[in-house]
Lab assay of single mutants.
Amino acid sequence: NQASVVANQLIPINTALTLVMMRSEVVTPVGIPAEDIPRLVSMQVSRAVPLGTTLMPDMVKGYA
């Protein structure tokens, strides 16, 4: 089972991601792979992401 990136806190719209905002977790459906966490740092979210939400490619500007 592949771990995905999950929000560790509420991430407001247009916030630049930092390591403390993200954790890896095995979830369904699968989201952005956990190994991409270093690449996500400083990228902005395109919408508010609630705590515990799996990050999907369309939620991060410039990821897809």
Rank of each mutant, 00 (worst) to 15 (best):
P33F: 14
P33S: 14
M22D: 01
A34W: 10
Q2A: 15
P57K: 11
R39Q: 10
P50A: 10
V60W: 00
N1V: 13
A64T: 15
D36V: 07
I32A: 01
L55W: 01
L19Y: 11
I37C: 04
D36P: 00
D58H: 07
S42G: 15
T54S: 05
L51W: 13
V49S: 02
L51G: 12
V26T: 14
M43Q: 10
P57R: 07
V41M: 09
S4C: 04
L10C: 05
G62A: 07
T54I: 08
T53L: 12
A16W: 14
A48H: 11
V30K: 15
A3E: 15
V5N: 01
K61D: 11
N8C: 04
V60E: 01
T28E: 12
E25W: 09
M22N: 00
M22Q: 00
M59C: 04
T18M: 15
P29D: 06
T28S: 09
G31E: 00
T28I: 15
V20G: 10
A3T: 08
A7I: 07
S4E: 01
L51E: 13
E25A: 11
V6D: 00
M21V: 04
T53H: 13
A34M: 08
I11R: 00
Q9G: 05
A64M: 15
A64S: 14
G62D: 15
N1E: 13
N1M: 15
A16S: 11
L51I: 14
V60C: 02
V26Y: 11
Q2G: 09
S46Y: 08
P57N: 06
M22A: 00
M59R: 02
E25R: 10
V41F: 07
D58L: 06
A34G: 15
V6W: 02
G31P: 01
E35Y: 12
V27F: 03
Q2I: 12
I32L: 08
Q44V: 10
R39S: 10
I32K: 00
Q44M: 11
V49G: 02
Q2R: 10
P33N: 14
V20H: 08
E25V: 09
G52A: 07
I13W: 08
T18E: 14
P29H: 06
V27T: 05
T53A: 15
Y63L: 06
P38S: 11
G62W: 06
A16L: 08
A64R: 03
I11V: 08
L40W: 01
A3W: 13
V6F: 02
V27N: 03
V49Y: 02
E35A: 15
V6H: 02
V27D: 02
V27A: 07
V26A: 13
M21S: 05
M43N: 05
A34K: 08
A7H: 02
N14H: 12
V26K: 14
V45N: 03
L10A: 11
E25N: 07
I32E: 00
V41T: 07
T15V: 10
N1P: 15
V27Q: 05
L17C: 02
G31D: 01
A7P: 02
L40T: 01
Q9P: 01
A16D: 10
D58M: 08
V49I: 09
V27G: 03
Q44H: 09
V45P: 02
I32F: 03
V26D: 07
P29Y: 04
Q2K: 13
R47M: 13
R39H: 07
N1R: 08
S46I: 06
P57G: 11
N14P: 02
V20D: 14
V41D: 03
Q2Y: 15
V26E: 06
M59A: 09
T15H: 06
E35N: 13
I37Q: 06
A7Q: 01
S42L: 08
G31Y: 02
I32G: 00
L19W: 13
P50S: 10
M56I: 08
M22T: 01
P12L: 06
T28A: 11
T53S: 09
P50D: 07
Q9T: 12
G31K: 01
V26H: 12
T28K: 10
N14K: 06
I37G: 05
A16E: 07
Q2S: 12
P38I: 10
L17W: 02
R39D: 15
S42R: 13
S46C: 04
V27K: 06
V49N: 02
T15D: 04
L17G: 00
V45S: 08
V60A: 00
D36Y: 11
L40P: 00
V30Q: 11
V45L: 11
D36Q: 12
E35S: 14
M56C: 04
T28G: 06
D58K: 12
R23I: 09
R39K: 10
E35V: 15
R23L: 06
N14L: 06
P12A: 08
V49L: 11
P29S: 04
S42N: 12
Y63V: 04
S24D: 09
A7Y: 02
V49P: 02
L10W: 12
L19M: 09
T18R: 12
L40D: 01
A7M: 05
M43G: 03
A64Q: 15
M22E: 00
L19S: 06
G62M: 06
T54E: 01
N14F: 08
S4W: 02
I37Y: 03
A34D: 09
S4I: 02
M43V: 05
M43L: 11
T53W: 15
P50T: 13
L55S: 00
D36L: 15
R23V: 05
L19G: 13
G31C: 03
T18C: 04
A48D: 15
L40C: 03
T28P: 01
L10E: 06
S42Y: 11
M56V: 12
P38E: 13
E35F: 14
Q9E: 12
N14S: 06
V49M: 05
G52K: 04
Y63T: 04
A34C: 05
M56T: 12
L17T: 00
V6C: 03
P29N: 07
A34N: 05
V30D: 11
A64E: 14
V30G: 13
L55V: 11
V30C: 04
T53I: 15
V45K: 00
P57V: 05
L17A: 00
V26C: 05
A16Y: 13
I32T: 00
S42M: 07
P12E: 14
T53Y: 15
M56A: 06
G31F: 02
M56K: 07
V30F: 07
L40M: 06
S42V: 03
T18W: 03
S24Y: 05
V20Y: 10
P50E: 08
D36N: 15
G31N: 01
T15A: 09
V60R: 00
N1A: 15
E25L: 07
A3C: 05
P33R: 15
A3R: 14
N14W: 12
T53M: 12
S4H: 01
T54L: 04
E25G: 10
L51T: 13
N1C: 03
V6S: 03
L10D: 15
